[in-house]
């Protein structure tokens, strides 16, 4: 579950010029795979968002014997404590969605900030920032998250911050090379000669010209975040209340009784799988559009 798209800004991928972002989205939407990805993603998001309103019962109500796969009147039987699996599935998506979205936002935001700082400073700031990312890149993302979840009590915010901490150095690297690529161009030079302040050049000239790789990173990190957030829930470490319906936690609770009652695990696993495939298809479509190589789509 990681980057399949070419390393944006690193080899061959040139950032689109300012003002082309809507064009980039439109171009990527013209491809079949982006549309398929969008449809799959919207389907799962719709289930997660509308689910709580249409769920037949309360998410913590006990409605039958534990781990029964066939209970009259219940679509998918009961879970480990006798709660309705279908109800809990409909309630359990929204936490995965907002946690992953915030992880992506914080992680990509921090990475972008580091990249804008480091890629356009040409001083020791660049050196220090990049060597710091090297240290955080010495851990696989999940291991870094586990280290910090062992130290701080798992809560929604520690999960968001630890997952984002794993994203930031990886985003920073990709975005820094994109920024470096733009920083030497003529219009940046002319902005410099006009005496513009560095931050206004960063935000006014550099940022608008790295939106291509930035959007690819967002899609990619969202795919990762969903896997990590659900994975931490699966490990029982997502920091949510113990009886809260959550797709990751459902897998953790249901796995011991998987043989007799597979539904509490299969439903959330399917939803998470579809969601990650959908977001990665979108990311791939955007990356192809940005690189100008959507040849594989059938032209």
């Amino acid at each position: 579950m990681s980057a399949l798209v070419p390393p944006a800004g690193d080899g061959g991928v040139t950032a689109p010029v300012a003002g082309q972002t809507p064009g980039l989205l439109r171009r990527s939407l013209a491809t079949g795979r982006t549309r398929a990805g969008l449809a799959i993603t919207m389907l799962v998001v719709a289930v997660a968002v509308v689910g709580p309103f249409v769920a037949p019962g309360g998410e913590t109500a006990i409605v039958g014997p534990p781990n029964a796969s066939e209970v009259p009147g219940l679509l998918f039987g009961t879970d480990v404590t006798g709660r309705d699996v279908w109800t809990r599935f409909l309630h359990g998506g929204i936490s995965v969605l907002w946690l992953s979205a915030l992880c992506t936002l914080v992680g990509v935001g921090a990475g972008l900030l580091i990249a804008l700082l480091a890629g356009y400073s040409r001083t020791w700031v660049d050196e220090i920032l990049m060597r710091t990312t090297d240290v955080f890149l010495a851990f696989p993302a999940i291991v870094l998250a586990l280290l910090f979840l062992a130290i701080f009590q798992p809560s929604a915010w520690t999960v968001i911050l630890t997952v984002a901490l794993g994203h930031a150095p990886r985003v920073a690297r990709v975005m820094r090379s994109a920024v470096l690529d733009v920083a030497g161009r003529d219009y940046v030079r002319s902005a410099e000669s006009m005496g513009l302040r560095r931050w206004s050049i960063r935000l006014g000239d550099l940022l608008p010209n790295v939106t291509g790789p930035l959007m690819v990173e967002c899609g990619l990190r969202l795919t990762y975040s969903i896997g990590l957030v659900a994975g931490l829930g699966f490990l029982g470490l997502s920091g949510l209340a113990i009886d809260q319906a959550d797709w990751g936690l459902m897998i953790n609770e249901g796995r011991t009784a998987f043989t007799v009652q597979p539904w509490p695990v299969l439903l959330p696993v399917t939803a998470i799988g579809l969601l990650t495939v959908g977001t990665n298809l979108i990311a791939d479509g955007i990356a192809r559009a940005a690189a100008g190589t959507d040849r594989e789509v059938g032209e």
């Binding site: 579950m1 990681s2 399949l4 795979r33 795919t223 969903i226 896997g227 990590l228 659900a230 994975g231 699966f234 897998i251 796995r255 998987f258 695990v265 299969l266 696993v269 998470i272 799988g273 990650t276 495939v277 977001t279 990665n280 298809l281 791939d284």
Partner: peptide, 15 residues
């Protein structure tokens, strides 16, 4: 390969 690369390990493992 694109689909497989998207899926988290535990999803593949459970499947």
């Amino acid at each position: 390969t694109l689909v497989l690369a998207s899926l988290p390990e535990f999803v593949v493992g459970i499947a």
